[in-house]
Design a protein around this nucleic acid. Sequence first.
DNA 1: GCAAGGTC
Length: 547
Amino acid sequence: MAYGGGGGGGGGSGGRAIRVLNVAEKPSVAKAVSGFLSKNQQGGLRVRDGRSRYNRIFEFNHTINGQPCHMSFTSVTGHLMELDFDDRFRRWHSCDPVDLYHASVRKFVPEDKSDIRRTLEEEARKCQWLILWLDCDREGENIAFEVIEVCTQANRNLNIWRARFSALIEREIQNSLQNLVRPNQLFADAVDLRQEIDLRIGASFTRFQTMFLRDAFMINLATDDRNLVISYGPCQFPTLGFVVERYWENQSHEAEEFWTINCTHNTDEGTANFKWMRGHFFDYTCAAIVYEMCIQEPTVTVTEIKEQEKLKYPPLPLSTLELEKRASRFFHMSPAHTMKVAEDLYQAGFISYPRTETDRFSEKTDLRAIVFEQQGHPLWGSYAQLLLNPEAGLWRNPSSGRRDDKAHPPIHPTRFSPGESGWSRDHHRLYELVVRHFLACVSQPAKAAETSVEIDIAGETFSSSGRVIHAKNYLDVYTFESWGGSMIPTYTLGQQFMPTTLTLDSGVTRPPPLLSEADLLTCMDKALGQMQRCMSTYRSCLIDIMQ
DNA sequence: GCAAGGTC
């Protein structure tokens, strides 16, 4: 890769330090990265204030691929720019809501971000290079181009680079600085498009339905001090749809009585509960007739015995969606809170970047090194040691999911911690989940022997099964999941006995439960997958047509 | 007065 060259005497300036402006997405990242990069550098780390009181500027010396650099490191706070309609469309009655689909829009730096803009302009004028340290997701790429726009307006000759990193740990940061790439315009464009669609649909529908419903229900603004805006956004509606759909199913459910036949058998080895293979009948008379036949001739004959080894596999490597679902299931943490806590852990360097779709590890990842780090933990350290011991036979290369966002690895621990004093209970729990999940991924599945027995009573079939766990394996460390064992007595084929009980039982159908947050995430993910498949079909159709 | 995405 050819560094320098392009802008205002980069690498070619004969050993003289070039001035580099570095920009992160948030102040904490600017501080953390500056901390790593200024280590062991002459002059250490200096800090000064910029125009914005939250976004300070860190300064230090560094060398990029042999080129001495003077680094200034500042930050933005998320998006620098906003998208909105031109002023003449801003008032609600200025146009028909449908006109908002072609009204002109503009992207600009809002008033409360103008101090950050000034800092960027002033610093950009002094620099030859610009390195973008924004989060490595689509929004980050879009913010990168917002920063580029502001900076290049102040200095046309900037040589612009993108640092890519998935964890706020020193090794990763040093590595990304020595392997700079160019920013990706296509990712940024995708976000611009999403912003425009959200704005046009949201504003036009919200104005339309608010005004329409006000008139329809004759709500008088003068006497009603509620600020009634009935908002519509492309993001809310699928979510609301799933929630409401399930609610309606739940409400319209009519409980229905059903009947089933159960059989139990006690021996000195234990009890077997046999379930009727027909499930249940909604018609009492039918069930009663069959039951009557069984009672007349209640002798049981064992007709089939199946024994097989059953495996329960560890989960796939951890993506954001799974992290949210599991934190919701295991700890009742809301997805929003989970992501806040995960972000804290990421910023302190304990886990990798928590926003990832990837559920497969790259072959280059040194999985054993990650396990190695965890050996000293009081709770799971001994399990980590066992994993690394080849004689234990516990290790297994992790399964690979089908998703790869090509930007970040699955969420995994990046730094050992026995727990930090500043952590809340949820920080502890989430770190524990990430570590235990990772250790589970590289472990053997749990193994059990399952026996299923089928019996015949008067021509009706019943079945029961028992399970004996032979090796818990990953379940020893993944304590959030369990796999119950159950014993049933030993039977032989053709054996005959009398049932201990043979009963006709009734039950009532239950409505489907309201959607949990974890269920909702699953619905959204499924719908996203369907949409992506549609899009890809559509895309190949277009390509066909064009050829 | 409107969206959704960043972040303080």
